[in-house]
Design a protein around this nucleic acid. Structure first.
Length: 442
RNA sequence: GCGGGGAUGGCCCAGUGGUACGGCGGCAGCCUGCUAAGCUGUUUCUCUAUGAGAGCGAGGGUUCGAAUCCCUCUCCCCGCGCCA
């Protein structure tokens, strides 16, 4: 949620942010219309309540002095009827107003470029040495602003779907039979590789000052609504029938909600939390995309980074979160590019967002594996997470970034580290201590 | 699931129908000077702000008036039951 006071003081700030996102100004305008009405009625209501309180005190005195309070009581009854009516009106206007308020998006970081469309997200950097099939070189170089480094290959590597069939690593048919599309059984060495990835990422973050939590996998409506935005609710979340519970789409949400309504000490900050959990997503808006294999699925495991910090430092921590994930992917030997999101592609919560996209030689594309968001004080204001400072209690800034999502990283490893026969996958060196094997083959 | 106990400001705690007591901590100031202490003020949210309103886990109800009485719910603690 945005800061109402700031909105009243400087509407232009929010109008600009709305425009850059392609929103139009109706939201802000209808907020002000309702807010004006709300203030007017609230003011009369409070005056009436004051009158009532005064009368009530008089009754109290009258009773003590053994005078008859009947006439005074009647006056209060009349006021009560008015108060009831006004209160109903205020409540209804207030809820309408707050509904608008909750939809007004976060203020965009001034460094974000005003543009639209995923293809226009500004390129930030490339790292690695990608295997690129010669037909894809042009695409590869254009996506890296000619800064990409590659080794040309004269064949197209197998997709993970074919590889896993060759090596008996995933059973999609039976998962489809019992659960439906986008479900899977992960089998054998691929499962051990998944465990290795999670362990590796957790160890990595532990060494960088993160505490580790496995969160609740369900949140109630209130916590979820305050930790996320309406789009996530609509597009992603599974609800438990007959219960006030939703399956989490990422551990970002329970970690953010964990500290709701709390006041932290300044010396506790920054608070670095690593969350490890399955993530459940409906993928309702993704019909027809990535329908084969385990690239886009209804549940996967993820190691997430989350930071609560003082406002002054959130940009630094945003970079720290990005650097952590980059280092993980570098150490795995995967080539990636970083993009900086266009204003119109940011989520309502985001002030700024970077994505890390790994090169998949079998698809000839960079694909998203991690997403680093700075939500500034938008999430913390909804969740009411503050810290004590010299100038009073202030909202913390919250940031998050994927450290490692297992299914996509497994696909990346399979597609990048297969040999030419398509019957053997090399395990990245850093994972071998965790897996106990260095190849996956038939 | 059953029975009992609980939830009051950042924290602790008092409060059996008349408008929330006191302490601790934090902040500001004063006084002072020896590992410090003392004194005063302040401490949540909202508003059209010398003033008002709201706020005692949440939501209803009774009443002129509810932290207090009644109903429903949530969470925590103790015991019993069930259980990987």
């Amino acid at each position: 949620m945005i800061d109402v006071k700031l909105l009243r003081e400087d509407p232009e700030l929010f109008l600009n942010s709305c425009r850059a996102r392609g929103y139009g100004s109706d939201l802000v305008e209808s907020f002000f219309e309702l807010d004006k009405k709300w203030r007017e009625i609230t003011s009369i209501l409070n005056r009436t309540k004051h009158d009532k309180n005064v009368l009530s005190l008089e009754i109290s005195k009258a009773v003590k002095e053994k005078k008859d309070p009947l006439a005074l009581k009647e006056q209060v009854r009349v006021l009560n009827a008015k108060i009831d009516e006004m209160e109903r009106e205020v409540t209804s206007i207030e809820s309408e107003r707050d509904q608008k308020l909750r939809l007004i998006p976060n203020i965009i970081d001034p460094e974000v470029r005003t543009c639209k469309g995923d293809d226009n997200n500004p390129f930030v950097k490339f790292n690695g040495n990608a295997s690129v099939f010669h037909d894809d070189i042009r695409e590869f170089m254009s996506r890296t602003e000619n800064k990409g480094v590659y080794t040309e290959i004269d064949y197209r590597p197998l997709s993970h779907v074919d590889l896993q069939a060759n090596l008996d690593l995933v059973d999609l048919e039976r998962a489809g039979k019992i659960s439906g599309a986008r479900f899977y059984f992960i089998k054998n060495r691929l499962f051990k590789l998944e465990l290795a990835l999670m362990n590796y990422a957790v160890d990595f973050l532990s060494q960088r000052g993160f505490s580790v939590v496995e969160p609740p996998l369900m949140l109630n409506y209130d916590s979820m609504a305050r930790a996320t935005d309406i789009e996530t609710f609509k597009e992603s979340l599974y609800k438990i029938e007959g219960e006030d519970l939703y399956l989490i789409a990422t551990s970002e949400h329970p970690i953010a909600a964990m500290l709701r309504d709390e006041i932290l000490e300044q010396k506790e900050l920054p608070l670095r939390v690593c969350g490890v959990s399955p993530c459940f997503r409906k993928e309702a808006g993704a019909h027809g995309k990535d329908t084969k294999g385990i690239f886009r699925v209804h549940n996967f495991n993820k190691v997430e980074q989350f930071i609560f910090c003082e406002p002054e430092y959130s940009k630094d921590f945003h970079n720290e979160l990005l650097a952590n994930t980059e280092e993980i992917y570098q150490s795995l030997g995967l080539s990636y590019r970083v993009i900086d999101f266009c204003s119109a592609e940011l989520s309502v919560l985001n002030a700024r967002k970077f994505d890390i996209e790994v090169w998949f030689p079998s698809q000839g594309k960079f694909r998203e594996v991690a997403s680093a968001s700075n939500n500034t004080d938008y999430q913390s204001r909804s969740l009411n997470i503050r810290y004590r400072s010299k100038d009073g209690n202030k909202f913390v800034h919250t940031l998050n970034n994927t450290a490692l999502a297992t299914t996509r990283t497994l696909v990346a490893i399979m597609e990048n580290f297969q040999d030419r026969s398509g019957k053997r996958i090399t395990v990245p060196d850093v994972l071998v201590p965790y897996t106990g094997f260095d190849t996956i083959e038939k």
